[in-house]
Simulated assay, not measured.
Amino acid sequence: MRVSTASDAGDPKSANEDWAMASESLIVVLDVLEQGGPTELISGVRAIEAADPSCMRWARNKRSDDATAVYAT
């Protein structure tokens, strides 16, 4: 069993996705956490944020926010 919790920056639903897409995104998030840990996940989120400074592709209220992730197996 894989378990994760994350703040909004690591939450796959934060991009206003539908539930099916969010479920697929959660699997990707869990895979990244399993392979690279929370640091890898947060680094990936920061890269996505940097590539979208106008917040248009991934709608959000500000360019960057706090990021926390916990992963347990």
Rank of each mutant, 00 (worst) to 15 (best):
R60I: 06
G37I: 03
D52V: 04
R2S: 06
A9D: 03
N61D: 12
L30Q: 07
A15M: 08
Q35P: 05
Q35Y: 12
G10Y: 00
A51K: 05
G10I: 00
R63M: 10
V70H: 12
T73D: 14
A6E: 01
D52P: 01
E34T: 08
D52L: 04
D8F: 06
R57F: 11
E17M: 12
L26C: 08
G37T: 06
I27T: 11
R57E: 11
T39R: 14
L30A: 09
S25I: 04
S64L: 05
G37Y: 02
L30T: 07
W19N: 14
G36M: 04
Y71G: 01
R63S: 14
M21L: 15
G36A: 06
A22Y: 02
K62W: 09
M1K: 08
D31V: 03
A50T: 07
A72P: 02
D66W: 13
E49W: 09
V29Q: 03
P53R: 07
E49Y: 09
A72F: 10
D66I: 06
A67Y: 01
D11Q: 08
E40N: 14
A67R: 00
V3T: 12
V45C: 06
D31S: 07
V3Y: 09
I42M: 06
S64E: 08
S14C: 13
A59W: 13
A9F: 03
K13P: 06
K13I: 11
A59C: 13
A20L: 15
A72C: 13
T73Y: 07
S7K: 03
D66K: 07
S25Q: 10
N16R: 15
V3Q: 08
A22C: 05
E24C: 09
E17I: 14
G36F: 01
L30W: 05
D18N: 14
D66C: 11
D65L: 04
P12D: 01
S14P: 02
L26A: 09
I27E: 15
S25H: 12
N61Y: 13
A69R: 01
A22L: 04
I48G: 15
Y71Q: 04
L30K: 03
S43T: 11
A47E: 09
A20I: 12
G37H: 03
S14H: 10
V3A: 11
I42C: 00
Q35M: 12
A51M: 07
D18Y: 13
P53Q: 08
A47S: 12
A51G: 10
E17G: 11
A9Y: 02
V3L: 13
A15T: 12
M21K: 14
S14G: 07
S43F: 03
P12M: 01
D8W: 05
V45A: 05
G37V: 04
W58F: 15
L30S: 04
L41S: 00
W58K: 08
A9P: 00
S64M: 05
L26M: 13
S43L: 07
A51N: 09
E17Q: 15
G36N: 03
L30N: 08
A59G: 12
W19V: 15
D18A: 10
R63I: 14
S14D: 09
R63W: 10
